[in-house]
Design a protein around this nucleic acid. Sequence first.
DNA 1: GCCGTTTTCGGCCCGACTGTTTTCAGTCG
Length: 574
Amino acid sequence: MENSEFAKIFFEIAELLELKGENVFKMRAYQKAARNVENLPKSLEEIYKSGGIKALKEVPGIGESIAEHIEEIIKTGTFKKYKELLKEFPKDFVKLIEVPGIGPKTAIMLLKELKIDSMKKLEAAVKAGKLRELPGMGAKKEENIQKGIELKKKAHGRFLLPEAITYADIVVKALKKLKEVDQIVPAGSLRRWQETIGDIDILITSKKPEKIMRAFTTLPQVARVLSKGPTRSSVVMKNGMQADVRVMDPKSFGAALHYFTGNKQHNIQIREMAIKKGLKVSEYGIFRGSKQIGGKEEIDVFKSVGLPYIPPELRQGTDEIDCAKKGKLPELIELKDIRGDLQMHSKWSDGNNTIEEMAEYAKKLGYEYIAMTDHSKAVRVARGMNEKEVIKQIKEIDKINGKIKGIKVIKGIEVDILADGSLDLPDSILKELDVVVAAVHSRFKMPKAEMTKRIISAFNNKYVNLLSHPTGRVIGKRDPYEVDMEEIIKAAKDTGTYMEINAYPERLDLNDVHARMAKESGVLLSIDTDSHVDNQMDNIKYGVGTARRGWIEKKDVINTNPLEKLLKLLYAKR
DNA sequence: GCCGTTTTCGGCCCGACTGTTTTCAGTCG
């Protein structure tokens, strides 16, 4: 079973325990375990296979009893306590707490008093005005729940990073005009470069919060105000995205930025460390007793608990604090380290621009090289190239390289890995190219073992350099195909094949967790945009963001090398 | 349920906002 599936079960248990009114710390323990499992760069099954319960307990957040649950899941597919918990509530009842405004207490009251156990019954009861009659409820709360239901229906879940960034920019630009605004900076999951964003969080420092709040809640993009206070306000924007603004005094900026960046688990861990040192860390600062001893700068928070600065992308509440303590934080790759882009398409297949146009754009980005990797013939919809066209394109690229100055176009192909694991073009063609990117574009629904074998057999071809978008996912649209990622990574290592972080925002594939797995196995990566239009090369920042979340360093990425070194790496397998 | 350079038991982050309350519970981040 995949780690994400274990995580899902533990998250669900946390919800059920919360509804049951169990000890909140027990609930939180399951949440913590779930989150750590989700971000674990090694599969639980592997860990269990190699060291049993004892090895499982080494994972932060997993103790005796959760380790036993994991063992039971591995052996039987589920576990007893989980099945029992599920039986305690009606099947669709858990969904009620997903409605903004309904928490566990309200949900249980609704079940007990009004026999509401589904969204349908909830809607009917709201319409009939029955909620307002319950103790502690009133007309206003009923109305808020109704709005919450509408919001839940409309909100299509999470947003891709670029859309969230666009909206954050709108708010930032609009509020920056106010003279009362001192500093203004987006925080939250956006600052951590998470692949999808639930809401945007913006931190402002100012001595006059009221005016800022008025301006924020009356922006033309605001559809509804959820709450409005002197220091914090929440709104729903017209695209359905929630936005929170927090206004703080400048002397609290650093502590507030840390708090507002999260994630939650990370913050809790930092605050626990502070307590042990006799300090209190909150968004207002670092305090000894009632005296503020720091918090103007973000680094103060880390210093106060004896840690080096931890970059936002690493703040996932997993093992970053442990590693920071031991001085084992990575030196994360930066955007400026990228020297070229190794996957893109031109008019020769399904791209919008000519090779020259792509090269010119890359030059503007300061790149030393790009690789043209148009599709191969199997991808009919993308007008993939056959043998003759590849040879023709090679000659064309030679011509362009003779003409254009300051950048080198590397000859490449994105060759299809066919269903039987063979490649779409013969070796006699592949050997004429400098970089061969292999990818799966068909038969996504293959059984896991077969798909894994299919991909690995492509690695055994000595011309194949790079596996592109290794899981094929399209966020929110297409699930990843089933592959055994650990085996793929192992095979990549054994054959000297590289793996891609595809920077296309809907892909981000490898994702952060897989990227870290690859790194820890010693597999080198390439961060590419897979551009089909010249300006899509700007997407490289999302790939770098994902890489940073995956603890990737400059030395782990082949396209941080100068051209000559890169070519050596590309020819190393032949 | 987890965890331990104060602890193997007794802790477990901290604060804002709302709506319903007469001083706070519930929800959220």
